[in-house]
Each structure stands twice: as C-alpha cells, then as structure tokens.
Design a protein around this nucleic acid. Sequence first.
DNA 1: GTCTATAAGTTGATAGAC
DNA 2: GTCTATCAACTTATAGAC
Lengths: 201, 201
Amino acid sequence: MTDSGRRRGRPSTGVREAVLAATEEILAEAGVARLSTKEIARRAGVAESSIFYHFTDRLGLLQAVVALHLPRFKDVAEGLRAGEGELRGNLVALVEALEAFYTRIAPILAAVQSDAELRARFATRGAGEVIGPRRGVAPIAAYFAAEREAGRLRADLDVESAALLVMGAAHQRAVFAGLGGPVPGAVGEIVDVLIPGLTAG
Amino acid sequence: MTDSGRRRGRPSTGVREAVLAATEEILAEAGVARLSTKEIARRAGVAESSIFYHFTDRLGLLQAVVALHLPRFKDVAEGLRAGEGELRGNLVALVEALEAFYTRIAPILAAVQSDAELRARFATRGAGEVIGPRRGVAPIAAYFAAEREAGRLRADLDVESAALLVMGAAHQRAVFAGLGGPVPGAVGEIVDVLIPGLTAG
DNA sequence: GTCTATAAGTTGATAGAC
DNA sequence: GTCTATCAACTTATAGAC
C-alpha cells in the first residue's frame, strides 16, 4: 500500500516451497506410508521444525499439498472448446487430459484416502468439493451441456452421467497404468463405444 | 493320512482370523495411516507378537488381507448370465455389483497404493494381477464377449473398452460415494448412455 | 524465519517362557 | 501357538537461540 516495491507478508526464503516439493517427491516415490517429517526435512535441506512453523502439523502439510494440486482439475475442462473442432477429437483430448490429471494426483489421492482424519478435514472444503461428486463432475458436465446446446449431442442427454462415464474411464486407465502393464482399450476405442450414446436419439 | 480325524497343520485357535478381522476393521474405520500392530493386537485381543508369528511382518499381514478380498472380484462377474434376462437389467446389476465391490475394497486399495513397497510385492502376483489391467478386465470383458456371441451386442464391439467403461463408472461412483454427498447420475441413466454404443452398428 | 537440541511417545520386531 | 517382556529406532512436536 505505502511503498511500491514492498513485499506483503512472507519474505520467503524458499523453505516452504522446498518442503512442499520434497513432500510431493516422497509421496510419488514411496507413498504416504513412508512420508515422515524427518525425511521431508532431509530432502528439502531444511530443519524439521520449519515444517511445523509453516504448516502447523503433519496433516496441515498434507492439506497444503492437496490444495496445491486440486485447482488444476479446472484447467483440464477449461482447455475444451465446445462446438468447435471435431467432437470425437474433443472427447479423446478430454479423456487423455483427465487420465494425465488422475495419474499426477494419484499419490495425493491415496494420501487423502489413507487417513480418515485427513479425509475429514476435507469434508467441507478440499478434495471432497473439488474432485468430489458436486464440483468435480460440474466442469465436465458443463462441457457436455455446451456441446449439447451447440446441437452436437442429443437433446435429452444426461450430462452428469456422461461426465461420470468419461471421468471413470480416464480414472480407470490411470489406475491400471499405475499398477503396471498395458492398459486395455485404446482411448479412441473407448470414445467410439461412448459416442453413439451421446449423439443418437 | 494315518488317523481319520487328524487335522492337517494349524489347530487354529482363531488368533489368525481375529487379527485379520481387526485389521480390516481399522482399515475401514481409520485408514492405513492409523494401522499399527499394537492397535491390531489390542482389538483382536491377542499378543502383538502373534501377528508376527502368523504373518512374518506388517506388510505380510497387509498382503494377507488383500489376498482375502481380491478373489471376490471373480464372484461379481460369475453372477452374470449372458444371453439370459434383459440386457439392460444385466448391465445395471453389473454396475451395481461392481460399485459394491469397489466400495468394500476401497480401504484395502488405499492401503496398497499408500506404500510403494507393498505395491511392489503385488507386482507379480496379487492386486496387480487380479484387479489390474490383465485379469481385472478379463471377467467383465468375457461377459461382454458372451453377450456379443449371443447376438445381443454389436459384432465389432471392443469388449475390453466396454469393460473398462463399466468398471470405470462403477469405481467412480464408489469413490464419489466415499467422499460423501450424492453421486451424480443414476446407474440406470449411465447404462442408458452406454447401451447405444454397445448395440448399435 | 530458520535453526539446533530435545523430549515423550509410538513404532515394528525379537527372545524366550510356557 | 500364544504369551510377556523388552528393544532400538523412529515418530511428531516443542523450546529457545540466532
């Protein structure tokens, strides 16, 4: 407000960021079960107590990591242009983008699901809201609604069911890919099975 | 071999079973993060060391719990009669059975995904094989193949894609239900969106 | 804001009696 | 097979110097 170059709040030495990065690293490599504040501090090259200074406690840190990633879900749907391009191409791109998203947040999702208390912290705001039933389906359903409005999908299509099918397929592919081995069914073939139900009267 | 009433191996005092039951209980209630051998022993009413006698180590116990549940996936597909009944009814029943299955094993799946070492133990045999890409899709794909053979699905249907879509929808519903709040899209509506792509030429 | 030092409690696992 | 007793290592978290 007063000085122009004056920074608001945290001068930021990068400790907070280093801790978050180290946490994501461990989460992806070893899983929540192996996530300890000691190991995080070691990897981040900071003091263990700094973690508690910035995030209050272990679950606070986990919350921060989740909060960091979930907004990116919105980006997936925002990249879509309903009514433009080829419908099939749009759907393939959507499934692929969703699959990539699910792959990236898989370790974080596992972390949330592995602790009931952490899950409870997100009951009101957080994962439950963003990738959960309500807001999670909404952006994808909105895309389908827009395509429907553009006359490219059947007028009586239940857009939430369509969204759930697409998200489910992408999630399932991400899970399978994570378990190793080839994922059954190419994205194009999945979309081809889906399209008649979206377009036909 | 010699005596008729002679039991083979473990006389079984029920400790093993009590430990497994207690483990599943904690897994469902609190998640893997809160699963300790101490708490298991307390709930099961047995000595902590008995756990190690029966399961070697903590991961061995987790392995046993997973092994206990995964075979039940086969039951889901076996309940289906291809070519019989109404196709739509069969599909609704399939999605519902799959959703119930995913709901039941959700805490166990989370446990597997939360520890890279545990996941590695199942790389060859275990979760990866049974609910993973290969064998996981197979029973469902086999059902679709049978319906296709019965002439109730289009001849060129990619049964693996169809299986992945159905499993994905069921899994997604289970995940959403677990996060709380109403699940978008009724099973019937989802199946209705799916059917044209399965039957139409 | 970041550190060092420290503490109280819990962890998975073993040894050995019965 | 099941127990009691025990362990060292590790866990999250706090206090206080800089």
